[in-house]
């Protein structure tokens, strides 16, 4: 075990991990926005919209994330989409996780007792109003954990964009192998840094979950 090497690479790797954090946050924001939209489609009264939502989920969950990244980054220029690796990675990861997050959101909404919607409607609230004031506040609490699981998967999934040479944690690790021939130390440090990120995220999810637990 080359302790000196570990000491040398940690500052560089922490820097690279920061890129992973940025990538994760951007993908998460995009993912949540798209997921909210897809969940709305999935819950629509209009069959065509429901189908579109279901199709989105099937496509993005039914194909490897790696292929989605390749398709956007390598295939994009062929159809006029020219993106730098970071942007392509963030967008592909965001669109991918959105499919999973849409299902978490939909699950939360469907877990709220049907009687809640009925009671709201019986008072004279419209469907949108009932959703906004009665169903969603209760569903939000039920979504926190599943969305947290999705977010953890996203953070770990960012490693895939090393393949399109985004200079994040995994890519940086691979580059150091060539110059040091010490893969054990290098990947161990890498793994520990991922664990720290995931642990931090898990703590955040726990806190959110407790904050929203409330009286109900």
């Amino acid at each position: 075990m080359d302790i000196a090497l570990i000491g040398r690479i940690v500052p560089v790797f922490v820097q690279a991990a920061w890129t992973t954090v940025e990538l994760s946050l951007l993908s998460l924001a995009l993912g949540l926005a798209v997921a909210a939209l897809v969940a709305m489609l999935r819950l629509s009264h209009v069959a065509a919209l429901r189908f579109a939502g279901a199709a989105y989920v099937s496509v993005f969950r039914g194909t490897p994330a790696l292929i989605q990244i390749f398709l956007l980054y390598f295939g994009g220029p062929q159809v006029g989409i020219q993106l730098d690796p970071f942007a392509a990675g963030a967008i592909a990861l965001g669109l991918n996780i959105a499919a999973y997050m849409a299902e978490s959101i939909r699950g939360g909404v469907l877990s709220v007792d049907r009687g809640q919607m009925e009671a709201a409607r019986s008072l004279g609230f419209g469907e949108g109003q009932s959703m906004r004031w009665i169903v969603l506040p209760q569903a939000a609490k039920l979504m926190i954990r599943p969305l947290g699981v999705n977010a953890v998967a996203l953070v770990k999934g960012t490693a895939l964009v090393a393949t399109i040479s985004v200079v994040e944690l995994t890519y940086t690790a691979q580059r150091f192998i060539g110059s040091t021939y010490k893969p054990f130390e290098i990947f161990a440090v890498t793994a520990v840094l991922y664990m720290i990120m995931v642990y931090g995220l898990t703590l955040l999810v726990d806190r959110l979950d407790r904050a929203y637990a409330g009286e109900a």
């Binding site: 809640q116 009925e118 019986s122 004279g124 419209g126 469907e127 209760q138 409330g214 009286e215």
Partner: peptide, 24 residues
């Protein structure tokens, strides 16, 4: 119809078997 029925429902109180209070 959505506008009409929301107005009509405001004039009818309904009490359910399972109460359906808003827990939040």
């Amino acid at each position: 119809f959505e506008r009409h029925i929301n107005g009509v429902r405001q004039q009818m109180g309904m009490v359910f078997q399972h109460f359906n209070l808003f827990p939040h």
